[in-house]
Design a protein around this nucleic acid. Structure first.
Length: 278
DNA sequence: AGACGTACCTGACCGC
DNA sequence: TGCGGTCAGGTACGTC
């Protein structure tokens, strides 16, 4: 589930429950996520107060009193779940109780998620964050930036966009969606895209992410889903997982043209419209 | 440095 | 109903 828009939605959902609160009780039920939790993880965050919840790319940065930052990556299947007081589920690996009485579980069936603790004054040098490219919601994400990062790259444009050093927070779904919105073929050589097309792409990425966050935010009004999960919302995609269907606004007959095409790039599924993306 | 394949883990789904 | 194969929105790491 989690690409940038989902992580941002999770961040916003966690804010009212955690900001300014103490993590009064922390129970580690499974320490072996994608990587082992830091030693004494539970003891080291227990009793700390949450000063800030930020996001860089797909990483959540939860600033705590005592000068440490709790770093969270949701991996492929991680989520935070309210309502753990009604009972824990399989794959609730971490349970947090706040001084307001809220219980929040970190739930991750595939255990591709991971966490770390870092010193706040050295957070920029954290190995997971140091190599991240510009976040598309930041001022630094410009056509000129994208051009400098893609220059000389021979890989396919879609593959390059998913490199976290190029677009922090880009994932497989929104890479296809952004390229559709920009009218660019995912198979183009990344280094050969002209400036005017990169300007379109920069805007398309921003718009696709903004729309997805808006959709998440609106469906998150009650901010606890029926499942109790944060950040899981229905979102309709223009091309992703729609092979054979007509793309939005298409005038051609999908039965004749074949509609949206699915290809595999770097082992990942890519969806695009061969007639409207070049 | 960049590009590519593989590994990690569980669950859902499909065809037989 | 059961079983094997395939696929899934993530990153890291070894190798070329």
């Amino acid at each position: 589930m989690p690409e940038l828009p989902e992580v941002e939605t999770v961040r916003r959902g966690l804010l009212p429950a955690l900001l300014g609160r103490s993590l009064s009780r922390v129970v580690v039920r499974r320490a072996d996520l994608r990587f082992p939790l830091p030693s004494d993880f539970g003891r080291r965050i227990e009793g700390r107060r949450v000063l800030a919840i930020e996001r860089r790319g797909k990483y959540l940065l939860i600033g705590l009193t005592g000068g440490s930052v709790w770093l969270v990556h949701l991996g492929m299947s991680g989520s935070f779940r309210f309502g753990a007081d009604a009972g824990l589920l399989t794959h609730d690996h971490l349970v947090i109780g706040t001084d307001a009485g809220t219980l929040i579980a970190f739930h991750d069936p595939r255990r591709f998620g991971f966490m770390d603790l870092a010193a706040a004054d050295a957070i920029d040098r954290h190995p997971r964050l140091a190599g991240l490219g510009a976040d598309p919601l930041s001022d630094g994400f410009t056509p000129a930036y994208l051009r400098s990062r893609l220059a000389g790259r021979r890989s396919a444009l879609k593959t390059a966009l998913m490199d976290q050093a190029v677009v922090a927070g880009m994932g497989n779904i929104y890479a296809s969606e952004s390229l559709f919105r920009a009218g660019l073929s995912p198979a183009r050589a990344a280094g050969g895209v002209p400036a005017h097309a990169l300007a379109r792409l920069t805007a398309a990425i921003g718009a696709v992410f903004a729309d997805a966050i808006a959709a998440g935010g609106s469906s998150l009004k009650d901010h606890v889903q029926p499942s109790g999960e944060l950040g899981c919302f229905q979102h309709s995609f223009a091309v992703y997982d729609r092979a054979g269907q007509p793309c939005p606004g298409c005038t051609c007959d999908a039965a004749v043209t074949g509609g949206i095409r699915r290809i595999v790039q770097g082992g990942r599924a890519t969806y695009y419209c061969p007639r409207r993306q070049h």
